[in-house]
């Protein structure tokens, strides 16, 4: 099973710890890391992608350590960063083919793979448009399509819906949930937006650099005797604040 295993992960910026003793198993399906701004989500994301080297602890994809087997992992990892990463000097198609080529995939294969996603994301007619001319929502859709070009087993998306309107958010979430179900991939979704969490998601609450809770959303709500993710989130974060 394509799992991501995080063991005793620690990272600090100077003397200030950003993440402490993070232990996580991310299994196939839709996994959500929920946390307020400054909780350490982006730091965790950077460690998971190898953008930041782990100061302590390990990140393994299917038993492969990101420190030593990065190349092999990158072949199977699709990433959407919070910060936009498109090349605005290239067209929509050029951005896709450039990314595909960086994974050794030819233009023909890239376009064949992208076609259905371009259709469902409403970008099929805009292939030759400059990326600069796309609005924020379309740029984000393009980044998501791009992350799927090499048919990754693992998908990491960091606050991928920030700044998008409600319709686009819903479209992105629904498309990705379908994709996960159909392709049996392991998707990690970091967010601070509670309405993006569904009852059957594997949910982790990250707050102040520590994992406060993890499990299936419905189980977590039952355990905490809460009716909604919002109540559950407030009760846990307030408990932490009070400590």
């Amino acid at each position: 099973m394509p799992n991501i295993v995080v063991e005793n992960l620690y990272h600090s910026y100077g003397a200030k710890p950003a993440l402490q003793a993070i232990d996580l198993i991310i299994r196939p399906g839709f996994n959500v890391i929920l946390g307020p701004n400054g909780a350490g989500k982006s730091t965790l994301f950077s460690l998971l992608t190898g953008i930041l080297p782990a100061q302590k602890g390990q990140v393994r994809y299917d038993q492969q350590d990101i420190k030593t087997q990065r190349r092999s992992i990158m072949h199977r990892l699709g990433v959407v960063f919070q910060q936009p990463t498109l090349d605005l000097n290239l067209s929509v198609q050029q951005n896709l083919t450039y990314f595909g080529a960086l994974h050794g995939i030819t233009k023909v294969s890239v376009m064949r793979q992208c076609e259905p996603l371009l259709q469902s994301f409403g970008l099929a007619e805009r292939l030759s448009d400059s990326t600069r001319s796309l609005n924020q929502g379309h740029r984000r859709r393009l980044e998501i399509i791009r992350a799927l070009i090499h048919q990754p087993q693992f998908l990491l998306l960091d606050e991928a819906t920030v700044g998008l309107d409600a319709d686009t958010r819903q479209l992105v979430l629904n498309t990705l949930r379908d994709y996960v179900t159909v392709n049996d991939v392991t998707l990690l979704w970091t967010t601070h937006l509670m309405d993006e969490v569904q009852s059957n998601d594997a949910l982790t609450l990250l707050h102040k650099g520590k994992i406060q809770a993890q499990g299936l959303t419905t189980d977590l709500l039952v355990q905490a005797q809460c009716n909604s993710v919002f109540d559950w989130y407030c009760s846990l974060t307030q408990t932490v604040e009070a400590m």
């Binding site: 992608t49 953008i51 990065r70 190349r71 092999s72 990158m74 072949h75 990892l77 990433v79 960063f81 910060q83 936009p84 990463t85 498109l86 090349d87 605005l88 450039y98 990314f99 960086l102 994974h103 050794g104």
Partner: peptide, 11 residues
């Protein structure tokens, strides 16, 4: 602009 990350995520 972030596009460096795309290059660095290449295998």
């Amino acid at each position: 602009m972030g596009s460096m990350k795309v290059l660095l995520m290449s295998p």
